[in-house]
Design a protein around this nucleic acid. Sequence first.
RNA 1: GACCCCUUCGUCUAGGCUGGUCUAGGACGGCGCCCUUUCACGGCGUAAACACGGGUUCAAAUCCCGUAGGGGUCACCA
Length: 494
Amino acid sequence: MTVRVRFAPSPTGFLHVGGARTALYNWLWARKNEGGVMILRIEDTDAERSTDESIAQILDSLRWLGIDWDEGPFFQSRRADIYTAALKRLIASGHAYRAFETPEELEEMRATAMAEGRDPVYDRRSLNLDEATVQRYLEEKRPYVWRFKVPEGETVVPETLLGDAEGCRFENARLGDFALTRSGTDDEWGLPLYNFCCAVDDADMSITHVIRGSDHLTNTARQMMVLNALGAPIPTYTHLPLILKAGKKMSKRDGDADPRFPVSVSARRDRGYLPEATMNFIALLGWSLDDKAEFFSRQELIEAFTLEGLSKSNANFDEDKYLHMNAWYLRNLPREDVTARVRKVLDEAGYKTAEHDAQWIDTIIGHVIERCRLLTEFPAAVSYFFKAPEAFEEKGVKKIFKGDAAPLLREAAAVIEGLSPFDAATLEAALRALAEERGVGFGKIAQPVRLSVTGTMASPGLFDVLIGVGQQESAARMRRAAELIEKNAVPTFS
RNA sequence: GACCCCUUCGUCUAGGCUGGUCUAGGACGGCGCCCUUUCACGGCGUAAACACGGGUUCAAAUCCCGUAGGGGUCACCA
């Protein structure tokens, strides 16, 4: 049997990491199985909340992650005929009936049921309406919804992950006669609702495996009842544990409130996360291969992925681990690949990398690469290679720009200026010689030099920095720093 | 509240189906050491968990029951 899966987002906001993981697992399952088909279905039956902008952003995020699809995107909003036909079949077979209650009546019904300790489900009052009353209501043009008449007994959701050997069981009556459509009249059919469309589409698209968040578990029982009523085959279901944020379900409503920890995929991209790291990290939130494997390329993920490897319990989103993984990819992806992406970020930050020697750009990126965890950290990290620091780290100035730092800097500048060739070995020998000559440890020279050239106390190896900055420029910066120290006018930042 | 689901280090997890090889392994984070001109990277080491209570068994993290805790769902949203 060919595997057919779908990712079915509702375009009511951006794609968040939970949705991305659902998409990923479906995609992996399709790609892993010979001939597997990934379908993208946009569940936009809620015209009020669905937006074109969301659709664009969701597709964009999926593409960025490298998750592609074989069929679709299909839009439920354009499949009205299919749902109408299915509804007619349900009506004809006695599985659907009109319900005339107003929202207020339903609200009251729920409140009463709760107060009496019953389940807050629809009490079927319209089901028991006699024919004459129904006719009268219709003539009065009273709006109504079509409700699904749940059968007696129970529904056992065939679950690959949760529940017991058979799956998860639900008592149909407790699920209630849910609405299939929004309210309308005979002149104008009400628009179909989620549980109905979803079931119809899963059948219509011959979906074999439904992989989605476990927040849908109770919906699945409803959808199965519709599938059964339609005589459609039942796919197997896999309800994924949820990704928790601060212990609670991660939702679009959380938004990107905290800019440091956004939940949307696009905001993560903007923050400087790599798609490779994102995919890898997300894959491991609820799935694992064994007790060793951590890093998976796209292809390795496809090969390793199994439904058995899924975890049953909810997972917390660990920012540190995500960051760590991103840093790993920065260091381990092919260098030219990373360089290209970093150049883009640098250009966006105004560095105009095309105006510099490509080899030089690549070299300085190499110098800071293991000090950056996000693409967005690069502009600040390479700043002193492009321009002299305007201010110096306050802590460093206090600690290092003191004593005989200024004369030492002037001497070091003179040494550096006269060097030929200007390479790491020569530089090191000369600077060490100077330290020895002055009877100080190498750090006494290295630290002021670093601070004067970069403005900070932390940097890549000193010789790399000096070579990257350039012979004359380095010497000039050191002299300028000496001057500032002597005038006691070093501009600082903290 | 009702229903459903889940429960191994702070976090993500391996192991659980097929009880003994688990004095519970890995990773992130923490701490310490090494490398070292700083910061990183890297290396080494270390603290840290089977929710609790009963069973079953020669033997339970693994099987059963109960309790507790957590999560999800209870729309004419998806």
